[in-house]
Design a protein around this nucleic acid. Structure first.
Lengths: 384, 384
DNA sequence: GATATTTACGCAACCGATTGCGAAAATAAT
DNA sequence: ATTATTTTCGCAATCGGTTGCGTAAATATC
């Protein structure tokens, strides 16, 4: 309120112009800007109000509010107090417009509603909140085109930095070029992409997959199947590689028959079970290492329904430590890594870079710890 | 770039002021504003660039870009083309500062990482995206104080509207007063709060709980326990009431011994199992209706471990249709309602209100459909 | 006490888009 | 051809905070 445009704020769309509320206009800028004629309750307090209240300049108020040393301790205190009594709230647009940063981070994820991702978001939100930053979140739904549009929106909204986990079918990151050109820092998390001007936060997928495969081998499994995801994404490529390497190191050969690539959805898990059951008995795997828990669990459910015993007939290991891994019976051996930490780390590093505390451009990748959680689904031998 | 402040953009924090880059300053406003001296690649195109490019005024460009009928079809087309060739992107701050709306919705949730909530967010994100709106998301972690701070931040960021699901221990909604005062529409979803100036989106919890309890009774259960949540939240209060009403209507009496209030966490589920096992055999419930799936599932797991059979010894029903309800064995009977739809509906209605298409102030509540999903955990009798 | 520094603050030009109003140009009416 | 309308557009003032630079006041130095 306090100026004309408010008369039609909510109906401004589509050429509806209301012009009969001139009585509200501020006739000239300066005189009226400082003479808050009426309805002081109806307009947000500005630094000009504070300035007038204290008989100082708006510049002083602006500086005082952000602890600029140019302002004496005394006036600074008075300004802060006045701001409080007047209920002053900084207008972020004006600030962003002039200062060119928004204290907002863009977050681009494939989907919001997975346990890992929502944990990562929670971690980011926490870190951002801690440092006075906000998050704008969008999901690509595993669709590159939507990812591109979202990236454009983020860029357009002038986010100070971008946190992104790629959609499964993104071939390249050309859609992030505008960010690189403008030197807007980009941090990849989980599903990363090598790029010399941005940083990645994730885990050592190769090692994790290697260890989990090795664990299965250690349990006496000889024919270990792998359920993998889209190899365009590093996480799935590396897990496959780690799996292969473990086989190789233990003199087991990789067989195409024992590798399925899918979306790792519930349906994919069920389909994998069907595939296994359709194999000749001698060709069936004696273990399955799935690149996520969802596929593993739904595969287990279907195999159990078909009468197979887990882990006696077929051992299982997943990835993610999703809540369902602790509900399925037997509980699923899996790889635990905290979405929360990944989100927190990614956001914190990004913010520190923005604040000038650290320099991300010299950091290529941050690898967080992942821990194998051994549960009954893979325990054919009793642990000593 | 193109003006002095950029020299210290990333290190502006904490009194670091760099002053030796005067060569970049724009000496006077108008002459230089239109004479893009150098590095045209380094500065975002503005309406002034387009104006100069076409020899029209910035005002005309501004109007042309938003299809103001005041501008002739011809110039309008030229403006749009020029905008495209110059790679123009509207500066949302300048726009928001002047026009006083942000095309941004604030979303305040208790936690991001639950299945229901992340689905709701996904639904909102979709709806918002569809209408050119963005989401700023924050979580209260079930802490009123954080909820208050977040609300203040949202308000401060001048969101056009607020979508909120209350933290479990919020006693009132005084912290939303600033929104009401400024006529910023607030939509509650799931965990709602009665308020004459805002709308609620959710399901009929009373009816749902009534039906699910009635279903258990229909299965022959006589001693039905209820695991409930914090009664400050309508969802839990209503579920309790629906449960009680169903008991009453079927001549079963409510017993305090068969009602536990908790956070409905995994631990709470396990604790409930302990509680049940500690009851004298004659006092044990023959069914449990939990206000969420998590508590139900962890209670089931513990009871199964103790040797109880489900549903023979004790039937189970949950609420939410969380993924874990389809993994637990036997599968959990539950109440299915789409977080996605709730999010979508809440956001869509809010946006329609903002656009003037509908008026939310006349809408008190929007109730979405919820559907009972009967699974093995409650089936003591064979369905006909 | 006079001059050199330092400190503290104000002026005014920004940032880029929006918009009320006046006015020129194009078209219609007389 | 002249006047009345309608179209189309430009001027300039915002929105509110930020910031380079100039300067008065306070303090220090000689």
């Amino acid at each position: 309120m306090g100026q004309g445009s408010s008369c039609e704020t909510n109906i401004r769309k589509n050429q509806i112009y209301v012009t009969d509320c001139i009585f509200l206009f501020r006739k000239s800028s300066f005189p009226l800007r400082n003479s808050c004629t009426k309805m002081p309750e109806d307009r947000e307090a500005t630094i000009y109000d504070i300035a007038k209240y204290l008989n100082v300049s708006a510049a002083t108020v602006s500086r005082g509010l952000k602890n600029n040393p140019m302002i004496s301790k005394n006036t600074r205190k008075k300004i802060v107090e006045a701001a409080k009594t007047l209920g002053y709230q900084s207008n972020t647009f004006a600030s962003s417009l002039r200062s060119r940063h928004t204290h907002t981070l863009g977050v681009l994820v494939p989907r919001l509603n997975s346990h890992f991702m929502s944990s990562a978001l929670a971690g980011m939100e926490n870190a951002a909140n801690r440092h006075g930053y906000n998050l704008i979140i969008a999901q690509s739904l595993e669709d590159v085109e939507k990812e591109k549009r979202n990236a454009a929106t983020m860029f357009n909204k002038r986010v100070d930095g971008l946190l992104i986990s790629l959609s499964s079918n993104a071939q390249d990151i050309n859609h992030l070029e505008p960010f690189f050109k403008r030197k807007i820092p980009v941090v990849f998390f989980d599903r990363v992409f090598p790029h010399e001007e941005s940083t990645s936060v994730g885990i050592n997928n190769h090692e994790a997959a290697y260890n989990i495969t090795k664990h299965l081998i250690g349990q006496g499994c000889k024919r270990i199947m792998h359920l993998g995801g889209n190899l365009l994404r590093n996480v799935y490529q590396e897990r496959l590689n780690g799996y292969k390497k473990a086989l190789q190191d233990h003199h087991l050969s990789f067989s195409k028959k024992l590798y399925l690539s899918s979306t790792l959805s519930e349906q994919a898990g069920t389909d994998a079970a069907r595939y296994i059951l359709d194999l000749a008995p001698g060709e069936r795997p004696d273990a399955v290492f799935s690149a996520n828990d969802t596929a593993a669990v739904y595969c287990m459910l279907a195999l159990k329904a078909a009468g197979l015993r887990i882990p006696e007939d077929i051992a299982f290991a997943g990835f993610n430590n999703d809540p369902i891994s602790r509900v399925i019976e037997p509980n699923l051996t899996t790889m635990d890594y905290s979405g929360n930490s990944i989100g927190d780390t990614a956001a914190t590093n990004l913010i520190n870079h923005l604040k000038g505390i650290s320099n991300l451009y010299t950091t290529d990748a941050i690898t967080l710890r992942a821990e194998m959680v051994i549960r009954a689904s893979s325990l054919k031998k009793l642990p000593e």
